[in-house]
Design a protein around this nucleic acid. Structure first.
Lengths: 197, 197
DNA sequence: GTCTATACAGGGATAGAC
DNA sequence: GTCTATCCCTGTATAGAC
């Protein structure tokens, strides 16, 4: 039940059930299949009930997206400390985000789909937006200390999340990444940031 | 008029106009807004005409996707030669794909959206599928020659297209990449593949 | 081959009882 | 707050004239 009401042991509220149902419908068959009827059925409530909790179907989708972003950010930050070397912080962040998404693949897929859905103009901040400041700080520290190459932060950022996201997609499609592959992915990512000699 | 009827100087056929209209509708406002009415209007034909050329709306979408893949692949391969060092081939391929997508941003966006659309199960080969063999050959050559690190090919591949795709998305969203940034992106990509010392 | 007109289904949203 | 029943619109697809 990760990402919706996960923190509380109490039974999920109707609102939570609706949000989780919407998330799963979209993750399984895309936005076009996520009709109000399908969502209500999966949540175990009547169709009309959706509109007691959300102004519209679109508002529901946006709310789900926001909650996913918050949850992933919080859960990564909870197990990340800002101490240690730049390289350690880099590796820790990489693993943290990876684990957060692996813990709830449906939420990950929802986020991906939402990003290509026109509705995303209403919450246009990308899924990893919360991490941008964090990553930028890492880059700044690493560049002033000489560990990280002198490329623009936007270029370096393109080598952090995108390869990971691509690997997550493959994992969800059934590809089993070995521990050695994961380690080497992190090594490869770090070597892309590292100052070359 | 790239990607649909671009090679011929003759006026586009009705079929081509429909395909291009579908491509642009999806690129601009997503699949949910790409109704048969919208597509027909943009193509300048009647709605019923769509069904003279395609069995269904979905068949149209799949046909457009296939054509994009073909076109990008062909146009990259046309200006790429397999000679030169592994590093040269790497850089050439990176630039070739980048340029192909920059030449038709709408086609690029269509490809991205299609990948998150459930219909993609009907043509589930990813957008860059044609390049996988090419890239795998590059990796094999580079690993046997010692230029490329000994990571699994699937890990290395995650550092080729995904960062580029991320940068293309930003470019389409209005971000202007300087020549220096592009060069350093390619350097960074290559350093992620390169054998570290 | 293309158009106009239309049949038919399905989806979002609301009304009103409980 | 939740359910049932229903309205209305939009979207896909077809029929048939030209």
């Amino acid at each position: 039940m990760a990402l919706t009401g996960a923190m509380t042991a109490s039974p999920p509220s109707t609102r939570d059930k609706i949000m989780r149902a919407a998330l799963e419908c979209v993750a399984e068959d895309g936005f076009s299949a996520a009709t109000t009827a399908a969502i209500a059925k999966r949540a175990g409530v009547a169709e009309g009930t959706l509109y007691r909790h959300f102004d519209s179907k679109d508002a529901l989708f946006v709310a789900v997206y926001s909650r996913i972003k918050e949850h992933v950010f919080d859960s990564v930050m909870a197990e990340t400390d800002a101490s240690g070397s730049v390289e350690d912080r880099f590796r820790q962040l990489w693993r943290g985000v990876w684990n957060a998404y692996r813990a709830d693949p449906a939420a990950f897929v929802y986020g991906q789909r939402f990003g290509e859905y026109p509705l995303s103009r209403q919450d246009s901040r990308p899924i990893h937006d919360g991490f941008v400041r964090h990553i930028s700080a890492l880059i700044r520290d690493g560049q002033s200390g000489g560990e990280i190459r002198e490329a623009s932060a936007s270029v370096l950022r393109a080598f952090f999340f995108p390869p990971m996201v691509s690997m997550l997609k493959q994992a969800i499609a059934g590809h089993e990444w070995s521990q050695a592959e994961l380690d080497s992915a992190i090594d490869t990512a770090w070597d892309s940031w590292r100052r070359p000699r």
